[in-house]
Amino acid sequence: MTIAELAKQGKFVITAEVGPPKGVDITEMLENAELMRGKVDAINITDQQSSVMRLGSLPVCRLLIERDLEPVFQMTCRDRNRIALQSDLLGAYTLGVKNVLCLTGDFIALGDHPQAKAVFDLDSVSLLRAAKELEQGKDLAGNELAGTPNFCLGAVVTPGADPLEPQLIKLEKKVKAGAQFIQTQAVYEPEKFETFMKAVAHLNVPILAGIIPLRSAGMARFMNANVAGVHVPDNLVEEMEKAEKRMQKGVEIAARLIKDMKSMCQGVHIMAIGMEKRVPQVIEAAGL
């Protein structure tokens, strides 16, 4: 079932994330995906995360479908122009992919091929629109399609951005363009998240709060300094610092955040970033 269908049924939606490998050895990636079986509703497959060249999202989505796991196809506008993006959307549909998360994408210079030419022909809003047009039997240029695809379209937002208003304006555009669910950047402050949820209540779209389990106090400090819109408050950094078993503490904090925010939103999106084994632990500890 798609994320939008689950949310409509009132299910608290749980998604997690798996990153394709750099290369063709897919063993570990599939093991990670296997850990999620029966625990999550869908698994996001990242699209060359952080602009680092890797195995593509679409083939991995298909590999999951063959194993009876529900994928979320992440698509960025960084590497493909509107011709390739639309083509891959058609490809996704023919391969059985329904959930598509539409993102702008990180800038090229932040990855491992800074010499590459950035594309950004479309932005996240117009990518959503392109997918919507395809669903209506036309491409972006207005040409008719033979057969029409159908998607469950998603988008992202950064609830911790300061100022928040520009993000809200863009989120509104994304929902208008066709976004049926929203996954957020990592959140560590439930009070601020509540304010955000109140500000977007009128959009009437299911929102999955982003959770990144902490590994260490150093990781928290690094994110605070370098990741836009992510803020780990001092008390959590301190908690991590004092913890004897840091990994366990990270899981405990993630579970606590989920418990605190569960009543505010329609689901959670857990991004373990290379520590996928912790995802089932977080879900269990949160009592989901």
Binding site: T104, D106, F107, D123, S124, V125, S126, V156, V157, T158, A161, P166, Q167, I169, K170, K173, Q185, A228, G229
Partner: peptide, 8 residues
């Protein structure tokens, strides 16, 4: 159509 998530 507005800022990306990389604005800080």
């Amino acid at each position: 159509n507005g800022p990306c998530g990389g604005t800080k």
